[in-house]
Amino acid sequence: MSEISNWIDSEVKGNDVVLFMKGTPDFPQCGFSGQVVQILDYLGVPYKGINILTSDDLRQGVKEYSQWPTLPQLFVKGEFVGGCDIVKEMFQAGELKSLFADKGVATQTDAPAAE
């Protein structure tokens, strides 16, 4: 594996939820990335957002790593989940929440109500 794919691999495996995106969670620079950010925020899932606009090598490396041609890309527990359409469809069907539950990733809606 190249240096960049090693780095991507360690990010994906070292964090429960990783979103490769255009821009940052606070300032998405693409509508599709923004939609995934909104869904993750709505579910209250902690995630690491990685801005692929910072490096051409990173942007190409992510596409090669997942064998998926477009961004954003969501990974949960090291596994590629999909891009914006798939995340949106899974969210609408309630499957995204189940995926997080099955993988042991806490969402805010599972947490006890704040005092």
Binding site: Q67, W68, P69, T70, F80, V81, G82, G83, D85, I86, E89, M90
Partner: peptide, 18 residues
């Protein structure tokens, strides 16, 4: 699966996506 469907479509349109 959803992922398989998208992958199949992406593969068919590989040149255009590149």
């Amino acid at each position: 699966s959803r992922l398989e469907r998208h992958r199949a479509i992406n593969a068919a349109l590989k040149e255009e996506l590149a």
